[in-house]
Amino acid sequence: IQKSIQASASYLSELDKLKKVKVLSTISIKVQQRSKADSMDASYTSGLFKGGDGTTFILEGDPFANSAGTVLTYLQGKVAGLNIAGSGSQVSLSWRGGTPLLYLNEMQQQVDQVQSIPLSDVAMIKVFRPPFFGGLGGGSGGAIAIYLKKGGSRNENVRGLNFANVAGYSPVREFYSPDYAQADQSTEAGDYRTTLYWNPYVITDKTHRRILLPFYNNDITRKMKIIIEGCNAEGKLTRVEKIFE
């Protein structure tokens, strides 16, 4: 009986604890998705160029970027108060009585250097309203920061231009030519080489007009085609083809 009373007391104690537990109402978690401009700003900018009071232009997907030609032509009429006049390297900038500073990947540049940048290589342009405290002299005319695309995001499909991916130069390789005078070069397998000899470094002069070029024939050739190509000291080219039986 005593054990039964203790079990009942324990049960009542646990039941009392459950009564004191409060069930919270439904919790709603709201996540704000980062805009593309914010993502680009986080990826490309640093220091005083990050955030700030400015306007960001993302050139990817902007049809006007393909026809504008230059960065400053693209910005004409897009930023209130920013005056851009002229074209090419003769363009002039003014904003609230000052001249905006120009930056390429956060390094200060001159107008002609900025105007030579293809828009197809530009990922983002960030225009800072005056004053821009990241510039020399307080940046009384504001600033224009241009960011080039990173390696993996370069656009190779630019209308009107042809692109090709070049793997690079091949390392120097020595042309294989067997030396059957040595025992370890002999083999029972047949020799079916199609090119018997190739040497790009044959140099002649007045004292060495004839040069001996020894090589071994293969097992099947009875007729040889000899091709000689070269140039003289004046850069004149020559090519000779002959067949020997």
Rank of each mutant, 00 (worst) to 15 (best):
A42I: 12
A37W: 02
K17D: 00
S43L: 15
L48Q: 12
Q33P: 06
L12K: 14
D53L: 06
K20Y: 02
M40L: 12
K17S: 00
G51T: 11
L15Q: 08
L12G: 07
Q32F: 09
D53Q: 12
E60T: 12
L59P: 09
G61V: 07
K50Y: 11
V21Y: 09
G51S: 07
Q33T: 02
K20L: 01
L48Y: 08
K30M: 00
G52Q: 00
R34Y: 01
S35N: 06
V21E: 10
Y44I: 11
S43P: 05
L24V: 15
V21N: 10
K20I: 00
K36E: 11
L12M: 14
S13P: 15
K50W: 13
D38Q: 10
Q32S: 04
L15W: 14
K19C: 01
K36C: 03
E14W: 09
D53N: 14
V21I: 14
K20F: 00
S46F: 14
L12V: 12
M40G: 03
L15E: 11
T55Y: 06
K50M: 09
S39K: 07
K17P: 00
S46D: 14
Y44T: 14
S46L: 15
Q32P: 00
G52W: 03
S43G: 06
G47T: 07
G54H: 07
Y44F: 15
F49M: 03
K17L: 01
G52D: 01
L12Y: 10
G47K: 10
F57T: 12
L18R: 04
V21H: 12
S39E: 12
V23K: 11
D53M: 07
T55M: 13
S39M: 09
T26G: 15
S35L: 04
I27H: 10
V31K: 00
S46M: 14
T56G: 08
G52I: 01
Q32I: 11
D38E: 05
R34M: 03
T45P: 03
G54Q: 01
Q32E: 01
F49C: 03
L18Y: 00
D41C: 00
E60M: 08
L24C: 13
V21Q: 09
S39I: 10
Y44D: 13
S43D: 15
G47Y: 03
S25H: 04
R34E: 05
S46I: 15
L12E: 11
E14K: 11
R34V: 07
S35D: 02
R34D: 02
F49H: 05
Q33D: 01
S28W: 00
K19N: 05
L24P: 13
T26Y: 07
D38P: 00
E14L: 05
K17Q: 01
F57L: 15
K20M: 03
D38S: 10
T56Q: 04
L48A: 14
K30Q: 01
L59C: 11
E14G: 02
K50T: 08
D53I: 08
Q33S: 06
A37T: 10
T45L: 09
K20Q: 03
M40P: 07
I58A: 12
K19D: 05
D53E: 12
L24W: 13
L18C: 01
E14Q: 09
L24F: 13
G51H: 04
M40R: 04
K50L: 13
S13Q: 12
